[in-house]
Every structure is written in C-alpha cells, then in structure tokens.
C-alpha cells in the first residue's frame, strides 16, 4: 500500500478516519418548527397576498418569500400558455439582469400551485429554468407535473418514483398528468435529436 512514492500520504483507512472525525463534529440542526400561532399567521398572510397585491402596489411580505429570494428587475404580464382538461397554465416572464425565466402557475378547479417572480429561490434564479412542480389535484384524483424548458426542447421525461412518463413541450412549457399517488423525482428535457437540454430535480435545474 505504500508503493506510491509519498510516505506522507494517508492510507484509505486514515482518510476515512478523518472523514469520520468530521462527521462526529457535525451537529444536526433541528428543523425550525413554527409555533401554531406563527403558522396561522403565515397561512393567513399567504392567503391574503394575492388580494394585497391587487390592492397595494409593491412586494408581498418577506415572510412568504424563500430566504435569499431576489426581486426581479422586470416582470411581464401573466399569460395563459396551455389549457387542458380541467387545468390552465399561466406564465409570467421574470427578468433578473440579463437572465430571464418563466414563473408558472397551474390552476385547477379549487386549487393552484406555482411560482412568483419575486419568490424564486436563488438556485432557481441561477438555473436555466425554474424547477418543475407537482400539484396534487385531489378533487380529480390526479397529479399534474409542470415546468418550463429551455429553447429547443421538444420532449420531457418526467421521472417518478419507480416509473417515468413523457410529456410534449408546447410554448416552451410542459404539463404531464400522472397518478395522484406518484411522486416526482425530476425531469429531463430533450431536443429533437435526443440531446438532453436540461435536468431538473424539484429544487434546481442545470
């Protein structure tokens, strides 16, 4: 094991011992749980944000935005880009300096999910597109996975736990209908020649 001409080099066991020491020093931080009152406040604020935006100009409360979320330099007008059975996908263009991406919102009867330009995580802003979202549509016993893709993408493979499905790209976005019990693992976009254009997990795309 010492035939590499470097007597100061550690053996694999010594390297692992160093890693073990680093693991021992680490202290797991408990996830902060909001007190019931605070959680109620967050829920009420979240519910009031659209109404507040409609009435008051300016940004929503920071309480509803992820840590480190940047405010966009410009926000376009929301536009419906895809409609399907009992759903509607609305896109808003967000510009951050020279980089632009779409914030998508999917609406189904009685529920909605999506992203706001001013509430994107830093990882989402720096990626080529915002990560995909899964909306569990309880009323119709289905889930909908949706997201934006880079230019040139024609097909998206939606990777779920233990299976995958495909989705066509329309107007730079995709919507895949899956079972309510399926869970999204990630998506991969492909150009017409089969070249991957983007890989996403639910938190970031690259």
């Amino acid at each position: 094991m010492s035939g590499h001409g470097d007597s100061a080099a550690r053996t694999p066991d010594e390297v692992l011992a160093d890693l073990g020491a680093a693991l021992r020093r680490a202290r797991p931080q408990r996830r902060r749980r909001l007190a019931r009152g605070a959680a109620l406040t967050v829920t009420i604020c979240a519910a009031l944000v659209p109404a507040a935006l409609a009435v008051l100009p300016g940004a929503p409360p920071d309480l509803t935005r992820p840590t480190g979320a940047k405010r966009p330099d410009a926000v376009g007008r929301p536009a419906t880009v895809v409609t399907g059975p009992q759903y509607r996908l609305i896109a808003t263009r967000c510009r951050f300096g020279g980089h632009a991406l779409l914030a998508l919102r999917l609406e189904v009867p009685g529920a909605a999910a999506g992203r706001r330009c001013d509430a994107l995580t830093p990882a989402a802003v720096h990626g080529p597109v915002a990560p995909p979202i899964q909306l569990v549509d309880v009323a119709h016993g289905r889930s909908l996975v949706f997201g934006a893709v880079p230019t040139g993408t024609t097909l998206v493979r939606v990777q779920l736990v233990r299976r995958a499905t495909g989705a066509r790209v329309i107007n730079g976005v995709f919507v895949a209908t899956i079972r309510a019990t399926d869970r999204l693992v990630g998506t991969v976009g492909f150009a017409a020649d089969g070249t991957p254009t983007v890989r996403c997990d639910p938190e970031e795309c690259a």
């Binding site: 094991m1 080099a9 550690r10 053996t11 694999p12 390297v15 680093a22 202290r27």
Partner: peptide
C-alpha cells in the same frame, strides 16, 4: 452542506491508494 461537513481533500497518492484498495 446542511451539516457544514467538509470531507477531507485527497492528494494524488491518497486517491491512488483508494483506487488500489
């Protein structure tokens, strides 16, 4: 990242020893 753990850096010789193992 969440736990702030830095894994030990490897020299070329240490990497070679692991590959040998």
């Amino acid at each position: 990242r969440r736990l702030g753990i830095e894994r030990p850096a490897l020299t070329d010789a240490e990497a070679a020893r692991i590959e040998e193992l």
